[in-house]
């Protein structure tokens, strides 16, 4: 039998990351699956083209959806990659360096994607 014990845990970055992985996971299931079912099963790779992207991004709701999906999925993925790397890189120096590299990679690619969606399809 497990008994109910509650521990007070200091909210370090790792604890926050652990919680974020699980909360984003619950959110990502409907978001990622709706996105993939719509784009690959309903539309299909054969029918995907620039015109369709432009048509979708003409609606503000689709742009907001795509930005949120990118933000949640990519931050979840980067945090997951951090967890994997930290299993191997155990020294404080290595972890600090990895934190900075991951942060830069995350910010750079998020900016490229999100600014691209905001900018929309160029005419």
């Amino acid at each position: 039998m497990t008994s109910n014990r509650r521990l007070q845990i200091k909210p370090t970055l790792d604890v926050t990351a652990w919680k974020y992985m699980r909360l984003s996971a619950i959110l990502l299931i409907p978001m990622v699956w709706f996105h993939t079912i719509f784009t690959t099963l309903i539309i299909g790779a054969e029918n995907t083209n620039l015109e369709l992207v432009a048509a979708r991004w003409a609606t503000i709701g689709w742009r907001v959806y795509d930005i949120l999906l990118l933000a949640f999925a990519f931050s979840h993925g980067i945090t997951g990659l951090r967890q994997i790397l930290f299993d191997f890189a155990t020294s404080t120096t290595a972890r600090k360096a990895l934190n900075i590299l991951l942060l830069l990679f995350w910010l750079a690619l998020s900016a490229v994607g999100i600014l691209g969606i905001i900018g929309g399809v160029a005419k």
Partner: peptide, 16 residues
């Protein structure tokens, strides 16, 4: 994650 990184780059060509 590897796929998503490439996917972001590919889709954002719609703008860039």
């Amino acid at each position: 994650l590897v796929f998503l990184s490439l996917h972001i780059l590919l889709e954002s060509t719609a703008h860039y």
